[in-house]
Design a protein around this nucleic acid. Sequence first.
DNA 1: ATCTTTTTTTAGATTTGTCTAAAATAAAAT
DNA 2: ATTTTATTTTAGACAAATCTAAAAAAAGAT
Lengths: 219, 219
Amino acid sequence: MSLTSSEENYIKAIFQLQVKDGMVSTNEVAAVLQTSAASVTDMLKKLKTKKLLVYEKYKGFKLNGEGRKLALMVLRKHRLWETFLVKILHFNWDEVHEVAEQLEHIQSQQLIDHLDDFLGNPAFDPHGDPIPDATGKMPFQSQMNLNKFPFQINGEVTAVGSQSPDILSLLEHKKITIGARIKVLQRFAFDNSFEIQINNKEQAHISAQLAEQIYVKKL
Amino acid sequence: MSLTSSEENYIKAIFQLQVKDGMVSTNEVAAVLQTSAASVTDMLKKLKTKKLLVYEKYKGFKLNGEGRKLALMVLRKHRLWETFLVKILHFNWDEVHEVAEQLEHIQSQQLIDHLDDFLGNPAFDPHGDPIPDATGKMPFQSQMNLNKFPFQINGEVTAVGSQSPDILSLLEHKKITIGARIKVLQRFAFDNSFEIQINNKEQAHISAQLAEQIYVKKL
DNA sequence: ATCTTTTTTTAGATTTGTCTAAAATAAAAT
DNA sequence: ATTTTATTTTAGACAAATCTAAAAAAAGAT
């Protein structure tokens, strides 16, 4: 089964939405892919005839086994390329997304296998997201959202929920990087914002909205 | 000026044809790109409105300065990726073409710059073809493989690819030494073997395998 | 110089992925 | 339960890149 770039983009988006929501809606996908709802419907019909998702008109949809497997392969390619760009070509981690979006559509199993080996079969990408292996298996990570992280416990930043440059530049400004030490000092009930300490030095004030994008694991 | 993948393919093909022929014909391009003459005409109109080539109906065409510059950038990308695939990912040199055809269309100046640096700014790709630098300048190729050496041109043997005693004794037998004068008289398509003349005297028959080990420069 | 063949271009159709506007359906509100 | 609002789908159009078949132009042959 081979996919066009566009099909790969849709499948990846649907996969990431259904991990959270279970069932996915047309508008959600349109929002993620910055396209119209009508275009999404068109693609859904196409993916249904390719037997990659379960879909009934007006009822929502989700990928089936084959669709999920293909989505994981797209995710694998994307994250391996991001790792390559940051680790090998010394891109900053907030510069890689757009390029990886292009590279992930290169069609060559051999290329991905060799790249994976060259990089040392990494389990996580530079944003801390898990990289599926060649069989589609995701490495487990005991990470949780910063909003749910307990007080006064040492944690390590493992991932960032969004790749948007706006968020990444804000995190950089606050010196919050993958691997940084983090401790929640105080929570303000008024707006669910936090005061946190980073790397046992700097303190920073984090809005609930930003905290939602930060994933942490206990140390 | 940004180009679609298709435009890049046409420009690259035209460039490589015009290096040899000067003026290029519709059918030549169609043959190289495995497409119809009608499609080539369509694209020519498009590239003309983009001011990348000189073209008059039924009169042939060739790239102008801007077109050549862009073609060189495509060639640069292609050859850098081939170098990466062979040197870093350990592809065999005959496996890289198809993948490099895809990779060459990735749009990111930064990516190419970083890749170039990572590879150590190579001057030649694994096939021995020159890699244009960031300004479009081609390194002068003083030596080339005997397999690529033109007919009936005087050359001088500059290097031998392998130091294996088997090869060296065969070369000695045929009186092929570093510094020897050489001229390709005939090529046999059946097995890509050659008839050559050495030092304006002896003639010898050279297998493709042996020719691959011999490097020559024009005189 | 005229006829024949080859090359090139045009005309019109097709595919993929997209769009807008309108219609159909579902969800929410009164 | 009916009306209003939101979501989703359909219908029809468009742009890019391609195709085939036919027409136009150039090149080659007699």
